[in-house]
């Protein structure tokens, strides 16, 4: 229990630092921007209570907002993403399977499941984020292009970091 707590705390701080001091400065042709910090919400344990899940997503979003000067923007996207996470997990994972697989990682859940999960949540998060930031229909082409390319970039980074910290399920 304590171990899970500390792991997630470190992950939170590390991902926020990585996002605001490194990834914030990276963009490909001004179109594709990675938002790797959402990996924290992806990797929260299955048994996280809903209240804690939403609260953490909200706080994660706000701390990113503080560095990006966009109060509320990332927080709103992260909270929406948390809802999609709850729905997706309730549909695809059996309740009694939690003892064996505490966290939805690549090693625990297999590539197909993890890829679908990460892709769906990333797309929802990015779509909401980019459209809320621009908030204009007249620029929809650019927004959609930026949204698609950024999703691909983020998803790529999520998979790379998942393989980097890959641990096979112990049976």
């Amino acid at each position: 229990m304590i171990r899970v707590l500390i792991t997630n705390l470190i992950r939170f701080v590390a991902l926020v630092f990585l996002q605001v001091f490194l990834l914030k400065n990276i963009s490909l042709y001004n179109l594709s921007m990675p938002y790797l910090y959402i990996l924290f919400i992806l990797l929260l344990p299955f048994e996280t209570p809903n209240l804690l899940l939403f609260l953490l997503s909200f706080l994660l979003g706000l701390s990113i907002d503080a560095f990006y000067d966009t109060p509320g923007l990332h927080a709103a996207s992260c909270v929406l993403m948390a809802l999609v996470r709850v729905l997706f997990i309730s549909v695809t994972v059996q309740k009694d399977g939690f003892d064996n697989e505490p966290e939805p990682t690549l090693g625990n859940m297999g590539f197909t499941w993890f890829f679908t999960y990460a892709a769906l949540l990333t797309v929802v998060h990015h779509f909401f984020l980019f459209n809320l930031e621009v908030f204009r229909l007249s620029e929809i082409q650019y927004t959609l292009l930026r949204f698609l390319l950024s999703s691909v970039f983020t998803l790529f980074l999520i998979l790379v970091s998942s393989f980097l910290f890959f641990r096979r399920k112990e049976r």
């Binding site: 209240l51 609260l55 997503s57 909200f58 000067d69 109060p71 509320g72 927080a75 709103a76 809320l132």
Partner: peptide
């Protein structure tokens, strides 16, 4: 829970954007 947190996030977002008010959540 989603409704509560989403509404508070959007409230912060809209308030800051429409009035350029100084909030505490920035650099």
């Amino acid at each position: 829970l989603f409704l509560i947190f989403e509404i508070s996030a959007l409230a912060i977002f809209v308030q800051y954007n429409s009035f350029q008010r100084a909030t505490y959540i920035n650099t």
